[in-house]
Amino acid sequence: MENVLIVGATSAIAQETAKCFARSGAALFLVGRSPDKLQAVADDLSVRGASKVGSLAVDLTQTTRHPEILQGARAFLGRIDGVLIAHGTLPAQERAERDREYAADALEVNLVSPVSILTVLSSYFYEQGTGCIAVITSVAGDRGRRSNYVYGAAKGGLARFLEGLRARLAPAGVRVLTVKPGLVDTPMTAHLPKNLLFASAERVGKRIHRAMLRGQAVVYIPWYWRWIMLVLRSIPEPFFRRLPL
């Protein structure tokens, strides 16, 4: 993949995937909200071997600006071979339970905004007839849990959207990848005590890169989450509800 667009490029996981692309000499277009952070990431990727790096600073909840992302990326890259959408926030469940606007914001960042971007991108890719669109959702979207259901709803909704998008774009030759990481040690989870279930951003980022090259449809990262979630999904709700999850 020679020309790659990365949305949410300052995410720890996205930076690791971007490094893999940079090492193979790809051209990259980065989108994020902080110009300072974008600059730091862009410089890093250039040193690591990217043939060129461009960036656009935009708060991704400003959906009216999403067409600019496509325009910017096309102007800079020409053809777009791959996209990774990685931005997101992990809302504090407790607050989301009592603060209506906070809960709505969480859905806005984690669901509405990627859906809006994907809507802009999908027609472009449909016409192009080739390419790969990867989006980071989460294992949290596989089941509604007491401890994290607002985030789970956004990621679960996004996964459903991607399932449909994959079906729509497959005949056109465009691949859609749903990425479902488990727990990852990144700034998003800095407040959580770490245990053996946490994977490094580096491992997750590399795996996403590989899945994009291979054209996979759904990946759990690390792999064992596929089996953990298979078990969790198979538990009927009356029992599931009682679990301390």
């Binding site: 909200r33 300072d36 708060d59 909840t61 709505a104």
Partner: peptide, 27 residues
């Protein structure tokens, strides 16, 4: 654009926010 961060709104401009501010700020 705004640099990353959450923002507490102190004062408000009439002709400006509609297209450039995220929903939560608007509210």
């Amino acid at each position: 654009y705004a640099p990353s961060g959450t923002y507490r709104c102190v004062r408000f401009a009439t002709n400006f926010w509609d297209s450039t501010l995220p929903g939560s700020w608007r509210r």
